[in-house]
């Protein structure tokens, strides 16, 4: 017999070794997330996936599912905190959706839609961040990096390289590139690397492919992120 946890009153089976997020995805339950992607080691840094487990806040993407857990996922309080955390990401970097090629395909934007975010709420940091357009095929716009660490993990876990790393401390955190010059063109990234395609926002873009799909017809222009995410993620992992 399967062991079970309860998410918002619904019994959800899980297998040993699964996290709460894994169990939820398998049961077609969406828990908002940005730094998590089931194809990679869980990271647990964005905190969007915070759920209440027997009354205590835990990150669903890293916390193991355990028999008898009573989990709250969709409550007004949790959604409010998730909204605020998303707004934090928006004010920390420089996100101008209307002028970003990723608009409509961006998970940060899509999560914001999902959480009904209408303003940034917090004062902007106006961080001084740079672009790295050195590589012929791949563009990095640091203004849009949310430090999800996915490119770091993709490069290590899938591409067997080490193109990206997170450096700095606290609010001075930054994404750095593994090359002598610090520029992408001198790194060993390849256009076919997973790391080049994993970014949930528009921080890493493939050059020469912009606007092939018109705005209005893009992923999250058509569907909400909960549906897209479940369709994508449970097909491999359900």
């Amino acid at each position: 017999m399967h062991k079970t946890i309860t998410i918002d009153g619904q019994e959800v089976p899980f297998e040993a070794g699964q996290t709460i997020m894994d169990a939820a995805i398998s049961a077609d339950i969406y828990i908002p997330h940005l730094c998590h992607n089931p194809d990679y080691q869980p990271h647990g840094s964005c905190k969007l996936c915070t759920v209440k487990v027997n009354g205590r806040n835990c990150s669903a993407c890293t916390f193991p599912a355990m028999e008898g857990q009573d989990i709250q996922n969709h409550s007004a309080d949790l959604e409010q905190d998730r909204l605020r955390i998303t707004q934090m990401l928006f004010v920390e970097g420089n996100h101008f959706c209307p002028s970003c090629e990723k608009t409509g395909n961006c998970q940060l934007q899509a999560v914001a839609y999902y959480l009904k975010m209408h303003d940034n709420h917090f004062p902007h940091f106006f961080a001084n961040r740079e672009m790295d357009a050195s590589h012929p095929e791949i563009l990095i716009d640091h203004n849009r990096c949310i430090f999800c660490n996915l490119c770091v993990r993709a490069s290590q876990e899938k591409d067997n390289k080490n193109v990206f790393a997170i450096s700095g401390r606290g609010i001075n955190k930054r994404l750095i590139i593994n090359s002598k010059s610090g520029q992408l063109k001198d790194s060993d990234i390849d256009i076919n690397d997973c790391a080049a395609h994993i970014c949930p926002t528009g921080a890493i873009l493939i050059k020469g492919t912009g606007y092939q799909v018109p705005i209005g017809q893009r992923i999250y222009d058509q569907q909400k992120i909960d549906e897209v995410s479940l369709a994508e993620e449970s097909k491999d992992h359900g």
Partner: peptide, 17 residues
Amino acid sequence: AHESCGFCTPCRVGTSL
């Protein structure tokens, strides 16, 4: 704010806010 390691969003951005 100075000592936040910066790993998680609520503390990294939150302590500066």
